[in-house]
Nucleic acid binder design. Structure first.
Lengths: 199, 199
DNA sequence: GAGTATCCTGAACGAGCATTCAGGACCGCG
DNA sequence: CGCGGTCCTGAATGCTCGTTCAGGATACTC
């Protein structure tokens, strides 16, 4: 049972990875069961065997990915000290140097899906809240440490979070002149303005 | 021929309007020829008669809409005086008080399509450039008038443009706590910080 | 080693949809 | 009138998938 129990699980994980890869390449609307199967080197039957539908596979893949990302983020932040340092860390992650998201592509897809699908809407709201609350914590920490100064921590947080989304769009669309490094710099510069601090 | 020449054109315009309306409601991926026909009160045959394909209809509808928006914007800006006033005007337009875009929804759709479709990518790049160059002009005008002050006008422009996109996402997704008014305030506050001016 | 549960395959099915098409109304013109 | 053009309809066509299914391998249990 040692090998037998593992192989199917391994296969399942491989399919999830294939889902993510196809999703990045073809987008939510363009992803077909057959694509996933091909990318995973298996049959479309198996994809539907493990996940009961295409939608199920997509959902589970995204959920898994996002959870991994936030777990990483929260662990990383806890291990970093100093609010300014934490902010830099978030800028790095957002700019895509991190391993888990890498692609804002998937976020864009999620946003659009959220426009028309209630369950996607809830998912993205939750994810956004999580990111925003991480940011808010860092801001608050900086303010009470006297490192940051802002008229309204809530507003500043929202603006910084939204700015990152906006920058990410340029990055995802490979707008000329937008690179991860530039994105990071631009965001940190804005943070410095917002928080009256040199970050 | 007086009436006869007009009626078909009118019908065509009605179809274009229907395309936009369906697009808003169902999104790019969810829009079907039959939906458009129903919304326009006509047959799917006619939709394909006027525009040779579904994709053609979608493209023409979006193009028309965007051109109208930018024509409005540029005319409005020309008629407004004072850079601070112009900035307020842009904030208003962005926050959706304007008539033409109203919906950032369509922008989100365009972004996602741009991820996978080269022609959409070019279209959105051009539109973005146009918006950004309007903003840049206003910033420059303010700087040379001595009303605005910024370390780098280019960076400030990019950040303000991206912030607006990010705020727009929250607005489009009806994130709790985001309203057109709040979006406008948040953006103007950021502009004030960036440009060292009270806007 | 027979029985059984789990994994897996690829062909077959059927729904959904863009597009085509055969025709029909209407109008202006000779 | 009759002819030809434009505008319009809705049924028929054909294709692209998601999903189902009949069957097979593999391995664990008794």
């Amino acid at each position: 049972m040692v090998i037998a129990a593992k192989a199917p699980e391994e296969r399942r994980r491989r399919i999830l990875a294939a889902v993510v890869s196809v999703l990045r390449e073809r987008g939510y609307a363009g992803t077909r069961v057959a694509d996933i199967a091909a990318a995973a080197g298996t049959s479309s039957g198996l994809v539907l065997y493990h996940f009961s539908s295409l939608a199920g596979a997509l959902t589970e893949a995204l959920t898994t990915l996002e959870d991994a990302f936030y777990d990483d983020l929260e662990r990383d932040l806890a291990a970093t000290d100093g609010p300014a340092e934490k902010l830099r860390h978030m800028a790095e992650l957002g700019a895509g140097s991190g391993p888990a998201v890498g692609d804002w592509t998937l976020w864009l897809e999620l946003w659009v899906r959220a426009l028309h699908d209630p369950s996607a809407r809830m998912a993205r709201e939750q994810l956004d809240r999580r990111w925003r609350s991480c940011l808010r914590d860092v801001v608050d920490e900086g303010v009470s440490a006297g490192v940051f100064r802002t008229a309204d921590a809530g507003d500043a947080t929202v603006r910084l979070a939204c700015l990152m989304d906006g920058l990410a769009i340029q990055l995802a669309l490979e707008d000329e002149g937008m690179t991860p490094e530039r994105m990071q710099l631009l965001w940190l510069a804005s943070a410095a303005l917002e928080l009256d601090a040199s970050v």
